[in-house]
Design a protein around this nucleic acid. Sequence first.
DNA 1: TTCGATTTTGACCAAACAGTCAAGTTTTGA
DNA 2: TCAAAACTTGACTGTTTGGTCAAAATCGAA
Lengths: 214, 214
Amino acid sequence: MSGLPDRSGDPEGRTRIQNRNREAILAAGREVFARHGLRGARLDEIAERAGMSKPNLLYYFPRKQDIYVAVLEQVLKDWLMPLDALDPDGDPVEELRRYITAKMALSVAQPEASRLFAGEILAGAPHIASFLENDLRELVKRKAGTIRRWVDEGRLAPIDPYHLIFTIWATTQHYADFDVQIRAVLGKQAGKPGFHDQAAQAVLSIVLKGIAPR
Amino acid sequence: MSGLPDRSGDPEGRTRIQNRNREAILAAGREVFARHGLRGARLDEIAERAGMSKPNLLYYFPRKQDIYVAVLEQVLKDWLMPLDALDPDGDPVEELRRYITAKMALSVAQPEASRLFAGEILAGAPHIASFLENDLRELVKRKAGTIRRWVDEGRLAPIDPYHLIFTIWATTQHYADFDVQIRAVLGKQAGKPGFHDQAAQAVLSIVLKGIAPR
DNA sequence: TTCGATTTTGACCAAACAGTCAAGTTTTGA
DNA sequence: TCAAAACTTGACTGTTTGGTCAAAATCGAA
Protein backbone atom coordinates (compact mmCIF):
# COMPACT_ATOMS: atom_id res chain seq x y z
CA MET A 1 0.00 0.00 0.00
CA SER A 2 1.24 3.43 -0.84
CA GLY A 3 2.28 5.87 1.89
CA LEU A 4 2.94 3.31 4.64
CA PRO A 5 5.63 4.28 7.12
CA ASP A 6 8.87 2.36 6.82
CA ARG A 7 9.07 0.01 9.78
CA SER A 8 11.97 -2.12 8.57
CA GLY A 9 14.36 -0.27 10.86
CA ASP A 10 12.44 -1.33 13.93
CA PRO A 11 12.59 -4.86 15.38
CA GLU A 12 9.07 -4.57 16.75
CA GLY A 13 7.77 -3.30 13.42
CA ARG A 14 6.74 0.04 14.88
CA THR A 15 6.76 3.43 13.27
CA ARG A 16 8.95 6.34 14.29
CA ILE A 17 5.95 8.09 15.88
CA GLN A 18 4.90 4.96 17.77
CA ASN A 19 8.36 4.49 19.22
CA ARG A 20 8.60 8.09 20.27
CA ASN A 21 5.18 8.16 21.90
CA ARG A 22 5.46 4.81 23.62
CA GLU A 23 8.75 5.89 25.16
CA ALA A 24 7.20 9.15 26.36
CA ILE A 25 4.27 7.25 27.87
CA LEU A 26 6.49 4.70 29.59
CA ALA A 27 8.71 7.42 31.04
CA ALA A 28 5.70 9.35 32.30
CA GLY A 29 4.10 6.15 33.57
CA ARG A 30 7.24 5.12 35.45
CA GLU A 31 7.26 8.48 37.20
CA VAL A 32 3.58 8.44 38.18
CA PHE A 33 3.40 4.74 39.08
CA ALA A 34 6.59 4.96 41.17
CA ARG A 35 4.93 7.60 43.31
CA HIS A 36 1.29 6.53 43.35
CA GLY A 37 1.17 2.87 42.38
CA LEU A 38 -1.28 1.46 39.83
CA ARG A 39 -4.44 2.32 41.73
CA GLY A 40 -3.34 5.78 42.72
CA ALA A 41 -2.10 6.81 39.30
CA ARG A 42 -4.36 8.92 37.06
CA LEU A 43 -4.42 8.57 33.27
CA ASP A 44 -4.79 12.32 32.97
CA GLU A 45 -1.59 12.79 34.92
CA ILE A 46 0.37 10.31 32.85
CA ALA A 47 -0.92 11.85 29.63
CA GLU A 48 -0.02 15.34 30.74
CA ARG A 49 3.51 14.29 31.68
CA ALA A 50 3.84 12.44 28.39
CA GLY A 51 2.79 15.59 26.56
CA MET A 52 -0.26 14.16 24.84
CA SER A 53 -4.03 13.90 25.20
CA LYS A 54 -5.59 11.07 27.16
CA PRO A 55 -7.30 9.47 24.12
CA ASN A 56 -3.96 9.50 22.34
CA LEU A 57 -2.34 7.79 25.31
CA LEU A 58 -5.01 5.10 25.15
CA TYR A 59 -4.44 4.73 21.43
CA TYR A 60 -1.01 3.29 22.30
CA PHE A 61 -1.90 1.48 25.55
CA PRO A 62 -5.64 0.62 25.72
CA ARG A 63 -5.73 0.22 29.54
CA LYS A 64 -3.99 1.91 32.44
CA GLN A 65 -2.82 -1.51 33.55
CA ASP A 66 -1.21 -2.07 30.13
CA ILE A 67 1.09 0.89 30.76
CA TYR A 68 1.85 -0.35 34.25
CA VAL A 69 2.75 -3.85 33.11
CA ALA A 70 4.91 -2.50 30.30
CA VAL A 71 6.78 -0.25 32.72
CA LEU A 72 7.23 -3.15 35.15
CA GLU A 73 8.60 -5.31 32.34
CA GLN A 74 11.14 -2.64 31.55
CA VAL A 75 12.20 -2.52 35.20
CA LEU A 76 12.44 -6.28 35.56
CA LYS A 77 14.42 -6.68 32.34
CA ASP A 78 17.58 -5.49 34.06
CA TRP A 79 16.62 -6.04 37.67
CA LEU A 80 18.38 -9.36 38.08
CA MET A 81 21.47 -8.67 35.99
CA PRO A 82 23.74 -7.65 38.88
CA LEU A 83 22.95 -10.83 40.82
CA ASP A 84 23.10 -12.95 37.69
CA ALA A 85 26.60 -11.62 37.11
CA LEU A 86 27.88 -13.03 40.43
CA ASP A 87 30.63 -15.39 39.30
CA PRO A 88 30.70 -18.71 41.24
CA ASP A 89 34.35 -19.09 40.29
CA GLY A 90 35.36 -15.60 41.31
CA ASP A 91 36.86 -14.31 44.51
CA PRO A 92 33.99 -14.10 47.04
CA VAL A 93 34.80 -10.68 48.44
CA GLU A 94 35.47 -9.20 45.01
CA GLU A 95 32.32 -10.73 43.56
CA LEU A 96 30.21 -9.37 46.39
CA ARG A 97 31.96 -6.00 46.16
CA ARG A 98 31.07 -5.87 42.48
CA TYR A 99 27.50 -6.95 43.22
CA ILE A 100 26.96 -4.29 45.89
CA THR A 101 28.54 -1.65 43.67
CA ALA A 102 26.36 -2.60 40.73
CA LYS A 103 23.18 -2.59 42.82
CA MET A 104 24.10 0.77 44.27
CA ALA A 105 24.76 2.14 40.81
CA LEU A 106 21.34 0.91 39.68
CA SER A 107 19.69 2.67 42.63
CA VAL A 108 21.44 5.90 41.72
CA ALA A 109 20.85 5.66 37.99
CA GLN A 110 17.24 4.43 38.11
CA PRO A 111 15.67 5.38 41.46
CA GLU A 112 12.17 5.40 39.98
CA ALA A 113 12.58 1.81 38.83
CA SER A 114 13.50 0.82 42.37
CA ARG A 115 10.59 2.75 43.84
CA LEU A 116 8.17 1.24 41.35
CA PHE A 117 9.39 -2.22 42.31
CA ALA A 118 9.04 -1.37 46.00
CA GLY A 119 5.53 -0.03 45.47
CA GLU A 120 4.50 -3.18 43.61
CA ILE A 121 5.80 -5.27 46.54
CA LEU A 122 3.95 -3.11 49.08
CA ALA A 123 0.78 -3.62 47.06
CA GLY A 124 1.21 -7.37 47.44
CA ALA A 125 3.13 -7.95 44.20
CA PRO A 126 -0.04 -8.78 42.24
CA HIS A 127 1.64 -8.32 38.88
CA ILE A 128 5.02 -9.84 39.55
CA ALA A 129 4.15 -12.85 41.66
CA SER A 130 5.22 -15.17 38.87
CA PHE A 131 8.49 -13.32 38.38
CA LEU A 132 9.23 -13.48 42.12
CA GLU A 133 8.32 -17.13 42.51
CA ASN A 134 10.16 -18.30 39.40
CA ASP A 135 12.87 -16.09 37.89
CA LEU A 136 13.91 -14.47 41.14
CA ARG A 137 13.53 -17.50 43.34
CA GLU A 138 15.60 -19.72 41.03
CA LEU A 139 18.35 -17.16 40.60
CA VAL A 140 18.58 -16.46 44.33
CA LYS A 141 18.65 -20.18 45.02
CA ARG A 142 21.62 -20.65 42.68
CA LYS A 143 23.56 -17.69 44.01
CA ALA A 144 22.77 -18.58 47.62
CA GLY A 145 24.31 -21.99 46.82
CA THR A 146 27.43 -20.26 45.62
CA ILE A 147 27.65 -18.10 48.72
CA ARG A 148 27.05 -21.11 50.97
CA ARG A 149 29.96 -22.91 49.29
CA TRP A 150 32.16 -19.86 49.89
CA VAL A 151 31.14 -19.94 53.55
CA ASP A 152 31.77 -23.70 53.79
CA GLU A 153 35.23 -23.19 52.29
CA GLY A 154 35.98 -20.65 54.98
CA ARG A 155 36.21 -17.84 52.45
CA LEU A 156 33.33 -15.94 54.07
CA ALA A 157 32.15 -15.67 57.67
CA PRO A 158 29.39 -18.10 58.68
CA ILE A 159 26.37 -16.23 57.41
CA ASP A 160 23.07 -17.34 55.93
CA PRO A 161 23.36 -16.57 52.21
CA TYR A 162 19.70 -15.57 51.85
CA HIS A 163 19.91 -13.00 54.63
CA LEU A 164 23.13 -11.66 53.15
CA ILE A 165 21.39 -11.16 49.81
CA PHE A 166 18.40 -9.53 51.55
CA THR A 167 20.80 -7.24 53.41
CA ILE A 168 22.45 -6.18 50.16
CA TRP A 169 19.09 -5.52 48.51
CA ALA A 170 17.87 -3.57 51.53
CA THR A 171 20.88 -1.35 51.95
CA THR A 172 21.38 -0.54 48.26
CA GLN A 173 17.74 -0.05 47.28
CA HIS A 174 17.20 2.08 50.41
CA TYR A 175 19.03 4.99 48.77
CA ALA A 176 16.49 5.02 45.96
CA ASP A 177 13.33 4.03 47.84
CA PHE A 178 13.82 6.25 50.90
CA ASP A 179 15.54 9.09 49.08
CA VAL A 180 12.98 11.59 50.35
CA GLN A 181 13.72 10.66 53.97
CA ILE A 182 17.48 10.68 53.44
CA ARG A 183 17.27 14.15 51.92
CA ALA A 184 15.13 15.34 54.84
CA VAL A 185 17.63 14.04 57.38
CA LEU A 186 20.80 15.13 55.60
CA GLY A 187 19.55 18.30 53.95
CA LYS A 188 22.02 19.67 51.43
CA GLN A 189 24.57 16.95 52.22
CA ALA A 190 22.43 14.47 50.32
CA GLY A 191 22.62 16.45 47.13
CA LYS A 192 26.36 16.95 47.08
CA PRO A 193 28.52 15.33 44.39
CA GLY A 194 30.01 12.16 45.73
CA PHE A 195 27.20 11.52 48.20
CA HIS A 196 26.26 8.25 46.60
CA ASP A 197 29.90 7.22 46.36
CA GLN A 198 30.17 7.79 50.09
CA ALA A 199 26.99 5.82 50.62
CA ALA A 200 28.34 2.99 48.48
CA GLN A 201 31.62 3.05 50.39
CA ALA A 202 29.79 2.91 53.72
CA VAL A 203 27.61 0.00 52.67
CA LEU A 204 30.59 -1.82 51.16
CA SER A 205 32.58 -1.27 54.34
CA ILE A 206 29.88 -2.49 56.72
CA VAL A 207 28.74 -5.46 54.67
CA LEU A 208 32.11 -6.69 53.44
CA LYS A 209 33.66 -6.35 56.86
CA GLY A 210 30.57 -7.96 58.32
CA ILE A 211 31.06 -11.09 56.23
CA ALA A 212 34.84 -11.21 56.16
CA PRO A 213 36.19 -14.57 57.26
CA ARG A 214 37.87 -14.69 60.65
CA MET B 1 -28.72 16.75 79.64
CA SER B 2 -30.06 13.41 80.64
CA GLY B 3 -28.79 10.21 79.09
CA LEU B 4 -25.36 11.41 77.96
CA PRO B 5 -22.74 8.68 77.76
CA ASP B 6 -20.16 8.70 80.50
CA ARG B 7 -16.89 9.85 79.00
CA SER B 8 -15.02 10.44 82.23
CA GLY B 9 -13.14 7.17 81.82
CA ASP B 10 -11.63 8.32 78.55
CA PRO B 11 -8.81 10.86 78.33
CA GLU B 12 -10.04 12.10 74.95
CA GLY B 13 -13.61 12.43 76.26
CA ARG B 14 -14.94 9.83 73.86
CA THR B 15 -17.71 7.31 74.35
CA ARG B 16 -17.30 3.55 74.45
CA ILE B 17 -18.82 3.24 70.99
CA GLN B 18 -16.60 5.95 69.56
CA ASN B 19 -13.48 4.30 70.88
CA ARG B 20 -14.48 0.93 69.55
CA ASN B 21 -15.36 2.22 66.09
CA ARG B 22 -12.37 4.55 65.73
CA GLU B 23 -10.07 1.65 66.56
CA ALA B 24 -11.79 -0.55 63.99
CA ILE B 25 -11.49 2.17 61.37
CA LEU B 26 -7.84 2.85 62.11
CA ALA B 27 -6.99 -0.85 61.97
CA ALA B 28 -8.81 -1.23 58.66
CA GLY B 29 -7.29 1.99 57.35
CA ARG B 30 -3.78 0.90 58.27
CA GLU B 31 -4.29 -2.30 56.31
CA VAL B 32 -5.69 -0.64 53.19
CA PHE B 33 -3.35 2.36 53.21
CA ALA B 34 -0.29 0.14 53.76
CA ARG B 35 -1.12 -1.69 50.56
CA HIS B 36 -2.61 1.02 48.36
CA GLY B 37 -1.50 4.38 49.76
CA LEU B 38 -3.85 7.30 50.29
CA ARG B 39 -4.80 7.77 46.65
CA GLY B 40 -5.26 4.09 45.93
CA ALA B 41 -7.34 3.35 49.02
CA ARG B 42 -11.14 3.16 48.69
CA LEU B 43 -13.49 4.29 51.47
CA ASP B 44 -15.78 1.38 50.65
CA GLU B 45 -12.94 -1.02 51.24
CA ILE B 46 -11.94 0.52 54.55
CA ALA B 47 -15.56 0.54 55.72
CA GLU B 48 -16.04 -3.09 54.75
CA ARG B 49 -12.93 -4.13 56.63
CA ALA B 50 -13.98 -2.06 59.61
CA GLY B 51 -17.33 -3.83 59.59
CA MET B 52 -19.48 -0.73 59.11
CA SER B 53 -21.22 1.31 56.42
CA LYS B 54 -19.41 4.07 54.59
CA PRO B 55 -21.59 6.89 56.00
CA ASN B 56 -20.90 5.55 59.48
CA LEU B 57 -17.17 5.56 58.77
CA LEU B 58 -17.45 9.18 57.71
CA TYR B 59 -19.39 9.99 60.88
CA TYR B 60 -16.15 9.31 62.77
CA PHE B 61 -13.62 10.60 60.21
CA PRO B 62 -15.18 13.16 57.81
CA ARG B 63 -12.54 12.72 55.07
CA LYS B 64 -10.47 9.83 53.77
CA GLN B 65 -7.36 11.89 54.42
CA ASP B 66 -8.43 12.27 58.07
CA ILE B 67 -8.20 8.52 58.53
CA TYR B 68 -4.85 8.44 56.76
CA VAL B 69 -3.36 11.17 58.91
CA ALA B 70 -4.68 9.53 62.08
CA VAL B 71 -3.15 6.20 61.09
CA LEU B 72 0.15 7.90 60.24
CA GLU B 73 0.15 9.62 63.62
CA GLN B 74 -0.30 6.26 65.30
CA VAL B 75 2.65 4.88 63.35
CA LEU B 76 4.89 7.84 64.05
CA LYS B 77 4.06 7.86 67.77
CA ASP B 78 6.37 4.89 68.37
CA TRP B 79 8.49 5.09 65.26
CA LEU B 80 11.40 6.92 66.83
CA MET B 81 11.40 5.22 70.22
CA PRO B 82 14.07 2.64 69.44
CA LEU B 83 16.50 5.29 68.19
CA ASP B 84 15.57 7.66 71.00
CA ALA B 85 16.49 4.90 73.45
CA LEU B 86 20.09 4.75 72.20
CA ASP B 87 22.04 5.58 75.34
CA PRO B 88 25.02 7.93 74.70
CA ASP B 89 26.64 6.64 77.89
CA GLY B 90 26.11 2.98 77.06
CA ASP B 91 28.45 0.47 75.48
CA PRO B 92 28.42 1.19 71.72
CA VAL B 93 28.10 -2.37 70.55
CA GLU B 94 25.46 -3.24 73.12
CA GLU B 95 23.51 -0.08 72.39
CA LEU B 96 23.51 -0.75 68.67
CA ARG B 97 22.67 -4.41 69.27
CA ARG B 98 19.66 -3.31 71.30
CA TYR B 99 18.69 -0.77 68.64
CA ILE B 100 18.83 -3.29 65.80
CA THR B 101 16.93 -5.84 67.88
CA ALA B 102 14.23 -3.33 68.76
CA LYS B 103 13.84 -2.19 65.14
CA MET B 104 13.64 -5.79 63.97
CA ALA B 105 11.03 -6.52 66.65
CA LEU B 106 9.00 -3.55 65.45
CA SER B 107 9.14 -4.82 61.87
CA VAL B 108 7.90 -8.20 62.99
CA ALA B 109 5.22 -6.90 65.32
CA GLN B 110 3.91 -4.11 63.09
CA PRO B 111 4.78 -4.81 59.47
CA GLU B 112 1.83 -2.76 58.19
CA ALA B 113 3.08 0.28 60.07
CA SER B 114 6.43 -0.10 58.35
CA ARG B 115 4.80 -0.56 54.96
CA LEU B 116 2.57 2.44 55.47
CA PHE B 117 5.62 4.51 56.31
CA ALA B 118 7.44 3.20 53.25
CA GLY B 119 4.45 3.96 51.05
CA GLU B 120 4.23 7.49 52.35
CA ILE B 121 7.92 7.97 51.56
CA LEU B 122 7.50 6.55 48.04
CA ALA B 123 4.64 8.99 47.50
CA GLY B 124 7.00 11.84 48.32
CA ALA B 125 6.21 12.07 52.05
CA PRO B 126 3.57 14.77 51.51
CA HIS B 127 2.05 14.24 54.96
CA ILE B 128 5.15 13.71 57.05
CA ALA B 129 7.56 16.21 55.59
CA SER B 130 7.49 18.21 58.78
CA PHE B 131 8.05 15.12 60.90
CA LEU B 132 11.02 14.10 58.75
CA GLU B 133 12.59 17.53 58.63
CA ASN B 134 12.14 18.25 62.32
CA ASP B 135 11.57 15.36 64.75
CA LEU B 136 13.48 12.79 62.75
CA ARG B 137 16.25 15.06 61.55
CA GLU B 138 16.98 16.38 65.06
CA LEU B 139 16.95 12.94 66.64
CA VAL B 140 19.19 11.45 63.98
CA LYS B 141 21.55 14.40 64.30
CA ARG B 142 21.88 13.80 68.05
CA LYS B 143 22.37 10.06 67.76
CA ALA B 144 24.77 10.45 64.83
CA GLY B 145 26.79 12.71 67.13
CA THR B 146 26.88 9.95 69.71
CA ILE B 147 27.97 7.37 67.15
CA ARG B 148 30.64 9.71 65.79
CA ARG B 149 32.02 10.13 69.30
CA TRP B 150 32.14 6.35 69.66
CA VAL B 151 34.03 6.15 66.37
CA ASP B 152 36.41 8.92 67.42
CA GLU B 153 37.10 7.10 70.68
CA GLY B 154 38.02 4.01 68.68
CA ARG B 155 35.08 2.08 70.08
CA LEU B 156 33.61 1.59 66.59
CA ALA B 157 35.18 1.19 63.18
CA PRO B 158 35.55 4.41 61.15
CA ILE B 159 32.06 4.61 59.64
CA ASP B 160 29.82 7.52 58.77
CA PRO B 161 27.12 7.50 61.48
CA TYR B 162 24.36 8.56 59.11
CA HIS B 163 25.03 5.71 56.70
CA LEU B 164 25.18 3.29 59.61
CA ILE B 165 21.74 4.44 60.75
CA PHE B 166 20.40 4.19 57.18
CA THR B 167 21.82 0.68 56.94
CA ILE B 168 20.08 -0.35 60.14
CA TRP B 169 16.78 1.13 58.96
CA ALA B 170 17.12 -0.53 55.57
CA THR B 171 17.97 -4.00 56.81
CA THR B 172 15.40 -4.14 59.60
CA GLN B 173 12.49 -2.52 57.79
CA HIS B 174 13.18 -4.72 54.73
CA TYR B 175 11.67 -7.72 56.51
CA ALA B 176 8.38 -5.87 56.84
CA ASP B 177 8.35 -3.87 53.61
CA PHE B 178 9.54 -6.62 51.26
CA ASP B 179 7.87 -9.48 53.13
CA VAL B 180 6.04 -10.58 49.97
CA GLN B 181 9.31 -10.92 48.05
CA ILE B 182 11.06 -12.72 50.92
CA ARG B 183 8.19 -15.20 51.14
CA ALA B 184 8.34 -15.76 47.38
CA VAL B 185 12.07 -16.46 47.49
CA LEU B 186 12.12 -18.57 50.64
CA GLY B 187 8.77 -20.28 50.31
CA LYS B 188 7.81 -22.13 53.47
CA GLN B 189 11.08 -21.27 55.16
CA ALA B 190 9.87 -17.72 55.65
CA GLY B 191 6.87 -18.84 57.64
CA LYS B 192 8.70 -21.10 60.06
CA PRO B 193 8.95 -20.24 63.76
CA GLY B 194 12.25 -18.60 64.45
CA PHE B 195 12.62 -17.17 60.95
CA HIS B 196 12.66 -13.61 62.17
CA ASP B 197 15.04 -14.52 64.97
CA GLN B 198 17.40 -15.92 62.35
CA ALA B 199 16.94 -12.79 60.29
CA ALA B 200 17.69 -10.64 63.30
CA GLN B 201 20.77 -12.74 64.08
CA ALA B 202 22.02 -12.41 60.53
CA VAL B 203 21.55 -8.65 60.44
CA LEU B 204 23.14 -8.30 63.88
CA SER B 205 26.08 -10.42 62.81
CA ILE B 206 26.73 -8.55 59.56
CA VAL B 207 26.22 -5.05 60.91
CA LEU B 208 27.91 -5.43 64.28
CA LYS B 209 30.89 -7.23 62.77
CA GLY B 210 30.92 -4.65 60.03
CA ILE B 211 31.36 -1.82 62.50
CA ALA B 212 33.50 -3.57 65.08
CA PRO B 213 36.67 -1.65 65.91
CA ARG B 214 39.87 -3.14 64.61
C1' DT C 1 1.31 16.26 -5.13
C1' DT C 2 -1.60 12.65 -3.73
C1' DC C 3 -4.06 9.51 -1.09
C1' DG C 4 -4.31 5.79 2.13
C1' DA C 5 -2.75 4.88 6.67
C1' DT C 6 -1.70 6.64 10.91
C1' DT C 7 -2.20 9.81 14.52
C1' DT C 8 -4.67 13.05 17.16
C1' DT C 9 -8.33 15.08 19.99
C1' DG C 10 -12.74 17.50 21.72
C1' DA C 11 -16.71 15.92 23.23
C1' DC C 12 -18.74 12.51 25.42
C1' DC C 13 -20.34 8.27 28.30
C1' DA C 14 -20.75 5.20 32.13
C1' DA C 15 -18.90 3.67 36.20
C1' DA C 16 -16.51 4.55 40.31
C1' DC C 17 -15.84 7.21 44.11
C1' DA C 18 -15.93 10.66 48.05
C1' DG C 19 -19.04 12.48 50.61
C1' DT C 20 -24.23 14.09 52.15
C1' DC C 21 -28.69 13.72 54.30
C1' DA C 22 -32.95 12.59 56.35
C1' DA C 23 -34.82 9.41 59.07
C1' DG C 24 -34.73 5.33 61.85
C1' DT C 25 -32.42 2.73 65.70
C1' DT C 26 -29.73 2.28 69.77
C1' DT C 27 -27.53 3.99 73.77
C1' DT C 28 -27.36 6.19 77.95
C1' DG C 29 -28.05 7.69 82.61
C1' DA C 30 -31.26 10.21 85.37
C1' DT D 1 -39.23 4.27 81.99
C1' DC D 2 -38.05 8.00 79.21
C1' DA D 3 -36.22 11.43 76.31
C1' DA D 4 -32.17 13.42 74.52
C1' DA D 5 -27.99 12.28 72.44
C1' DA D 6 -25.50 9.32 69.85
C1' DC D 7 -25.24 6.14 66.31
C1' DT D 8 -26.51 4.02 61.96
C1' DT D 9 -27.66 3.52 57.07
C1' DG D 10 -30.22 3.36 52.37
C1' DA D 11 -30.60 6.38 48.99
C1' DC D 12 -28.63 9.85 46.92
C1' DT D 13 -25.52 13.78 44.74
C1' DG D 14 -21.71 15.73 42.47
C1' DT D 15 -17.21 14.93 40.94
C1' DT D 16 -13.67 12.20 39.24
C1' DT D 17 -11.97 8.81 36.40
C1' DG D 18 -11.19 5.23 32.83
C1' DG D 19 -12.25 4.71 28.54
C1' DT D 20 -14.94 5.56 23.63
C1' DC D 21 -15.86 7.65 19.21
C1' DA D 22 -16.29 10.23 15.10
C1' DA D 23 -13.95 13.28 12.60
C1' DA D 24 -10.07 16.11 11.60
C1' DA D 25 -5.11 16.51 11.01
C1' DT D 26 -0.73 14.67 9.87
C1' DC D 27 2.44 11.40 8.04
C1' DG D 28 4.82 9.06 4.52
C1' DA D 29 6.19 6.92 0.36
C1' DA D 30 4.96 6.51 -4.34
